[in-house]
Amino acid sequence: MKNVALATGLLARLALWIAGIGLVLMTVIIAAQVVFRYLLNSSLIWSEPASVMIMGWFIFLGAAVGIREGYHLSFDILLYVLPEKAKLFLHTVSDLVVAGFGAGMVWFGWELAEKTSGNMVPSLGISGAFDFIPIVGGGVLVVLFSIERVARRAAGLPTARFGDDADIEA
């Protein structure tokens, strides 16, 4: 279990780096759009669709990492009043539900990608399937990290709890 946790930790770190690079890339692309439109008097045709696609990547990857690190918004008032055993059981139920939704992201995201693979994304000239690759990729990580939480709990290792992190954004 320790080795698995190490591997998923690395995976989460990698996903966070990809998402971070995505955010910086988005910043650069939109900055370039501003420079082209206002200073160079011409337009980047592809800047909007490209940055929106990158945003999809960083949202779904970031959301998956959030499961492992426990920084999602949640409401755990009921859990405060329950005994420890019941609490752990409900956490596991919740993690399995999230894993199920992640599986849906993979399965149905793939279905959407297949359906639109013959279309072209305007201005980028790539297959419409690329629109749905981020949701599939994010879904895979959601499943992995949720199951890891269940496994860690079963093995008696600590898991980050949703709402633990005080540094929540409004």
Partner: peptide, 22 residues
């Protein structure tokens, strides 16, 4: 059920949302 995931994907693929991360 594919509609749910289509909405999820379209819901975040909005250019105006980019102001939030920035």
């Amino acid at each position: 059920p594919v509609v749910v995931f289509q909405r999820l994907n379209s819901g975040v693929s909005v250019f105006a949302l980019m102001a939030i991360p920035f």
